[in-house]
């Protein structure tokens, strides 16, 4: 067994670069980022679709890894950008999840919580508000809120100018305020 501590401590860009020579190393990128990307996908689509989103995201990333910008040591924006496209193809599933939550108050990926009543009181209107957003605005909003990407990282993820990120975020927030009355 070859200990790959060097790889483990390398930045993502190095890992991706090395994987062009030794493809199996790409699995290390999965191990590094899949747990949180999976969680993001569960929040957006539910647990059933999350597995497919993660697999499709990393398979697409592997396929196009030769195009990765090596000046970017952190691959999260790249991966979440791909994931956004994958999720976008399942727009109907996402909307169905929010609608089901609004109706039932149950998100299939969330374990029951003690203060479920209070949580519902907050989350239900938010889910209803997310339903009304344009997909492009929802992507930006949730990449910031749930994936915790910076504006610049979201811009790289979605391949749009930072100014567009700001405008979409503002539009999303405004729409949510209108829906909720206040957030």
């Amino acid at each position: 067994m070859t200990i790959t501590r060097e790889v483990d401590q390398s930045d993502d860009a190095t890992l991706i670069q090395e994987s062009l020579r030794d493809p199996e190393l790409f699995a290390a990128l999965f191990d590094r980022h899949a747990p949180l990307l999976h969680r993001y996908a569960v929040r957006r689509l539910g647990p059933d679709a999350a597995e497919d989103v993660v697999a499709d995201t990393f398979l697409a990333a592997f396929k196009h890894r030769d195009r990765y910008d090596r000046s970017r040591p952190d691959a999260r924006p790249w991966l979440y950008g791909i994931a956004s496209n994958v999720i976008g193809k399942r727009k109907r599933s996402e909307l169905n999840l929010y609608q089901a939550y609004v109706r039932s108050g149950v998100h299939p990926g969330v374990p029951p919580v003690e203060d479920g009543v209070n949580t519902l009181a907050v989350n239900r209107p938010l889910a209803a508000a997310l339903l009304k957003l344009k997909r492009a605005d929802r992507d930006v909003l949730l990449l910031v809120a749930w994936a915790e990407l910076t504006y610049e990282e979201v811009a790289r993820a979605l391949d749009i100018p930072v100014g567009t990120v700001r405008s979409r975020l503002n539009r999303a927030r405004t729409k949510i305020r209108e829906t909720l009355g206040d957030v």
Binding site: F26, F30, P35, H38, R43, A55, L59, G109, V122, A127
Partner: peptide
Amino acid sequence: DLKTMWAEVPVADRQDLAPARARLLNGM
């Protein structure tokens, strides 16, 4: 509020991710 919405979703462990990882390895 949006940040904490469904924040109870747990981070996936190795077992959760095994099928997706297997698909990646096979695709690779």
